[in-house]
């Protein structure tokens, strides 16, 4: 599903965030990406969504070769990847419903379908009944769940999360992580970047570890 071959990312300021990283994540797999801050976790996720481009090496995501992906194809790549951000990235001037509906609106899904799927997504994260509220009135954990509902509402085959529990207490973090586990059971390929090793022990999934831009553990399964 996701394959990196000798991928290097060097930023314009000369900093080499990723050094010759090769990895493979299979369809329907769930993987944790760990490493100290500045190890390159965020850069790795940004390469998958083509927010950043690799300097060298080859990247294949859901059978798309990102090194040769034309600019106008980028939106369609991103529709196949749900992303959960640490800072939620919600629109505070729109209701929970409108926030979650945004990927469907962007993709041109019809009105009735949109309504049905937004409710289903909110139901899954336990926020049904709050669709008319504004994100700012929700707690941090609830806002993060709105973000998750938005990430999965158009049923993407890949789900990425960048420190999704960074600002949450242990109990809420566990709830969120369990949600990712559930989506993985439904067949979604999940990649979660975190620095919280507690979840890894709890869920027992493969772990990839980055250190100073190099992958030092878990490049391939087994």
């Amino acid at each position: 599903m996701i394959r990196f071959s000798q991928v290097t990312k060097r930023y314009p300021n000369g900093h080499e965030a990723l050094k010759q990283v090769s990895l493979f994540i299979d369809r329907q797999e769930m993987v944790f990406l760990i490493g100290h801050s500045g190890a390159g976790k965020s850069t790795l996720l940004k390469l998958i969504t083509r927010v950043e481009r690799s300097t060298r090496g080859q990247l294949i995501v859901n059978e798309r070769n990102l090194t040769r992906l034309p600019r106008r194809q980028v939106p369609y790549l991103r529709r196949e990847i749900g992303v959960v951000f640490q800072d939620h990235k919600l629109l505070n001037d729109r209701t929970v419903f409108d926030n979650v509906a945004l990927p469907l609106v962007v993709a041109g899904v019809g009105h009735r379908d949109t309504s049905r799927r937004v409710r289903a997504a909110l139901d899954k994260v336990g926020l049904l009944g709050k669709e008319r509220l504004f994100p700012i009135t929700l707690s941090g954990g609830e806002q993060q769940r709105v973000g998750i509902a938005r990430a999965v509402v158009n049923r993407p085959p890949i789900l990425l999360a960048d420190e999704p529990t960074g600002n949450l207490d242990a109990e809420l973090s566990d709830e969120i992580m369990d949600l990712f586990g559930q989506f993985n059971q439904y067949g979604v390929t999940v990649l979660v970047a975190t620095h919280d090793r507690r979840h890894i022990a709890r869920l027992g999934k493969r772990v990839m570890e980055l250190s100073d831009g190099s992958l030092i553990q878990g490049a391939e399964e087994g």
Partner: peptide, 16 residues
């Protein structure tokens, strides 16, 4: 700006 960034992140085309 924030809205535009988010729309681009979730797969909004330039036309959209």
């Amino acid at each position: 700006r924030d809205e535009i960034v988010i729309i681009k992140l979730i797969g909004g085309t330039d036309a959209f």
